[in-house]
Design a protein around this nucleic acid. Structure first.
Lengths: 201, 201
DNA sequence: TATGTTTACTTAACAGTGTTAACTTTTTAG
DNA sequence: CTAAAAAGTTAACACTGTTAAGTAAACATA
């Protein structure tokens, strides 16, 4: 494997990203990337172990982008409920605005990551921590079991994820306005939290 | 295209299903299916227009299975809230027990269906009707806008779908018990409905 | 029974995929 | 200026879905 900081490596990644965004993840082939980058297909293997490794670099980019947005959102809003709702909106918006990134980040069967077992989902979970922490702000009384908010955070992201996937796959009934749908999903989450917060106070 | 009722056609479908379930959707190739079915790869094209068409047959099977379960559940439980919760559980259980079916049914990018634009998502929406109808049972006062329950049903299935995908992809933190997670997601849905039903009465 | 026609199916091939091994060129170091 | 290391290439392999052309079987008609 050649050095990490390389002109060609950056170029390959740039062209891969561009192809993914414009043509879609499906039509991402080593030869196409190489062609755009002006090198041979096998040259990619000088900088990436395989296609999965290259994809993984894009996946990391995506999680970094998403995380940056969520961290910023969390930092600017203090009120727990408002912050949580803003986090939800930010999450969905990211998914809808970056469908190709989102797809490659959350491929159903992540065989693409099997070779990275350690930090496999660490980045994805960092985003969950933001939600978990916000949820824990409701638990001033401390009556919830440890990890309760963490499970709840998983449930929330599951809902958000489902919403993003449903819209991006074009599975939403065309008669339903997308933003109304998103509002409904987030409303559902926030409404469910009422019981959570009422109990907590 | 040869006749619909054919020994070989049934055999091909059987072997494709078996391969999908045992080896996974990814390793489903025309040549493998043909080999198992004891014919040449091109013979498949006598009964299916292409691989997508073959997959579509399996997708239809999946939706038929899911629908049968939901219809039965809806028929046996009268109380709206209990029925809705049971539908949710049934949906998630189907997804978790038939991960390969579920994956092929809800591939993120359904290019596989683009050639069937008319009845594309009709079957998927039939399941939504079951939930929509149940939701409408809350609206005896008639204060909700038409289609409100339909959007709400979409939001609910989005949450359920997200939960299934998250678990099936192995994205759930190993420290979290799967059934507890599922319970939490469904609890979230049911809690959110409290506001819905309270308003309705 | 023999002939022609449709149906069923196969083989060969094409263009594409990720990936490896072997070879060549370029860069760097002594 | 030469030897070694790095960078990049071409050729090839084993796959993939799919099409065109050819063959074998079934069937209908005279």
């Amino acid at each position: 494997m050649s050095q990490f900081n390389s002109e060609l490596r950056r170029l390959i990644l740039d062209e891969a990203r561009h192809l993914m965004i414009t043509q879609g993840y499906n039509s991402l082939s080593m030869r196409k990337i190489a062609s755009k980058a002006g090198c041979s297909a096998t040259s990619i293997y000088l900088y990436f172990r395989n296609k999965d490794d290259l994809l993984h670099a894009l996946i990391e980019e995506g999680f970094e982008m998403l995380r940056a947005r969520l961290v910023e959102t969390a930092a600017t809003i203090q009120d727990p409920l408002q912050r949580l709702e803003a986090l939800c909106r930010e999450y969905v918006q990211f998914g809808l605005l970056n469908p190709e990134y989102y797809e490659v980040m959350f491929l159903l069967r992540p065989e693409h990551m099997e070779r990275y077992p350690v930090e496999k989902f660490r980045r994805a979970r960092k985003n969950l921590e933001l939600i978990t922490d916000t949820l824990n702000m409701f638990d001033r009384g401390g009556q919830y079991k440890a990890g309760d908010a963490y499970v709840r955070a998983h449930a929330i992201t599951a809902s958000l994820h489902g919403a993003v996937v449903l819209v991006n796959a074009g599975r939403l009934d065309v008669r339903i306005d997308k933003s109304i749908f998103v509002d409904t999903v987030i409303l559902q989450i926030m409404q469910s939290l009422k019981s959570y917060t009422i109990q907590a106070h």
